[in-house]
């Protein structure tokens, strides 16, 4: 029992002893999310780091019912779970799909699109470590421009990732989803508040959680939260919500340098200042656009 008030809900639904790497941001994401949902939650997880992290049979770090499913079917799986609960008239359960960026933005996007279009009452969370980490750091469509991965190597011809990161939240907005948001493990209270909002939605919800990965991003494990904070302060990963089409962007006085953020991580270290300069321009452009979306939609 806490003598003094703890910053977050005390109950742990993710036990210690999971097999995530040292300093894995995906573990923060899970721990905080489950603090928000509470125990009346069913979680479905496809192939991704989190397919392994719960432990090896007969171990599990979860204190909630948990189902492993195939890489591309998270949204179909939670649609099935919700339908089954509906069939038996069970209403007070949060149905949570939890997938990586590859399982969401690449191979699972079809099932996700179907679920959101149908209006299924379920929460879908993409924890974003910006590559296929489970299989050893291959690029996904969520890998940011400029990044090295094992399938976008720098080499002689500088074949690092050339395409920009796919924006899943905007894709969700285009579906007319009632609630979607970005969240960052460096702001756990904000993350928890967003998960709680998503739980209350009578329909689909989608949260994109920024979850740095020391192993794949090539930085020391104690820097996870620092890097996460910098990403948002540098506007690379803006925190915003879209509720029924209305944007709310979280503003920060504090700023961080994009260049410094990138130079802290081995995956970006090959970039020249010129290259970083052009990446920074696109970051600013998107952030300004977001503010315009906010202005436009809040006025309506």
């Amino acid at each position: 029992m806490a003598g003094k008030k703890l910053p977050l809900p005390e109950e742990e639904l993710m036990d210690p002893g999971h097999v995530g790497c040292l300093g894995c941001g995906g573990c923060h994401a899970m721990r905080y999310t489950l603090k928000a949902t509470g125990p009346r939650t069913i979680i479905s997880i496809p192939a991704c780091c989190w397919a392994v992290m719960p432990g090896v049979y007969p171990n599990t770090c979860f204190n909630i019912p948990h189902i492993n499913t195939a890489f591309e079917v998270t949204a179909a799986s939670i649609s099935g779970i919700r339908a089954a609960l509906d069939a038996r008239g069970i209403e007070d359960i949060t149905v949570l799909g939890w997938a990586g960026d590859g399982g969401t933005a690449d191979i699972g996007i079809q099932a996700l699109s179907g679920m959101v279009e149908r209006g299924t009452k379920a929460m879908y969370i993409m924890y974003d470590n910006e590559a296929y980490m489970n299989t050893g750091i291959q690029r996904s469509s969520s890998t940011p421009i400029g990044a090295w991965t094992t399938t976008t190597q720098v080499g002689k011809v500088r074949d690092y990732k050339r395409a920009p990161k796919k924006n899943m939240v905007e894709i969700m907005v285009a579906h007319g989803i009632p609630y979607t948001a970005t969240a960052n493990i460096a702001w756990p209270k904000d993350l928890i508040a967003k998960v709680k909002k998503a739980m209350a939605v009578d329909g689909p919800s989608f949260i994109h959680i920024f979850a740095p990965c020391p192993t794949g991003w090539r930085y020391p494990p104690d820097r996870t939260l620092e890097i996460a904070r910098m990403a948002t302060h540098a506007k690379i990963f803006p925190l915003y919500e879209v509720e029924n089409g209305v944007y709310t962007v979280k503003k920060f006085k504090k700023e961080a340098s994009i260049s410094e953020y990138m130079m802290m991580q081995g995956r970006f270290r090959h970039l020249t200042q010129e290259e970083i300069g052009s990446i920074s321009e696109s970051v600013v452009r998107w952030y300004d656009k977001l503010l315009k979306f906010e202005l436009m939609t809040q006025e309506e």
Binding site: G3, P16, G17, L22, C27, T224
Partner: peptide
């Protein structure tokens, strides 16, 4: 901030579960 939930809160202070702490340094 512990990604491993390896710190428990007893009364009013933190206690480290060295049985599980991976030593990430966060």
């Amino acid at each position: 901030d512990c990604p491993d939930a390896a710190i428990v809160w007893e009364e009013d202070h933190p206690v480290w579960l060295y049985s599980h702490c991976k030593g990430c340094g966060i």
